[in-house]
Amino acid sequence: MNTPSIAAYNFAYLDEQTKRMIRRAILKAIAIPGYQTPFASREMPMPYGWGTGGVQVTASIIGPDDVLKVIDQGADDTTNAVSIRKFFAKVANVAVTTRTGEATIVQTRHRIPEEPLSEGQILVYQVPIPEPLRFLEPRETETRTMHALEEYGLMHVKLYEDIARHGHIATTYDYPVKVEGRYVMDPSPTPKFDNPKMHMSKALQLFGAGREKRIYAVPPYSRVVSLDFDDHPFEPQTFDKPCAMCGAESVYLDEVILDDRGGRMFVCSDTDHCETRRAKGHRGELAGEIPEAAQ
């Protein structure tokens, strides 16, 4: 037996026919904002649930001149972000960056960058469960009908029950939104803190769910409204403290456990935002205590 040699892969891994199929799904998704467009998701060389949908969307839209940024939990250096960035650097040989402002495509899992995106940029979300109604109704046959009939009462009942039980809506991420007044959409498991950034975003937002074989989109300058009630308006998270590294306020923070005696620090989840601020001289209360070399 000879060890088989596997032929070279096409630019950005997927063959051109597959990219064409995915681009068609993307165009349809853009034409019907918030609608979950079925597509013939391919098996990818990374596991389902690890970004195969986002990777397929990125692979279909990326060109040799693009500059790619990949984040996971807001950070460029988390393991899966590193892995996906390396994948595209290898199969598409594109320029990669950690700077939000320099990227033409930002692939993300669970966060929207703090720095507002601009026209011409594309934000690609990795989506595990695209169906916002899934945990209220497990059957795809049912939920598709509910979307078709704009039958979203179940979701409002769920949110109402939260209020009845807890006094407020107890959904903190995956917080449902309505796009352009029609489709209720799952923003992917971003914290609800990020929901307002989706509204009237200048960037195109594409969502890829590989295992569930769905693509959806929010075109630039679209209305994206988090579901709520008149007497219980939507409220994003707020933090009491600024980032301990860069002093930023009104950003999403990660809680880091410093010791086993209850020591905690809060730092920017968006590493690029934090680094950029520190480079400009901003300092948080613990910035001096962290050895820079270790990073």
Binding site: E43, P47, Y48, G49, W50, T52, D72, Q73, G74, T78, T79, N80, R109, H110, R111, P128, A170, T172, Y173, D174, P189, T190, P191, K192, F193, R211, Q237, Y252, L253, D254, E255, S269
Partner: peptide, 25 residues
């Protein structure tokens, strides 16, 4: 099983931002 194992095992990917949201709540 490729889909199933991928999605089950994706739980070991970082989920700090969602967990942070739940911690706050």
């Amino acid at each position: 099983n490729v889909q199933a194992t991928g999605f089950v095992e994706h739980l070991k990917l970082p989920h700090y931002v969602d967990f942070q949201a739940e911690l706050q709540l």
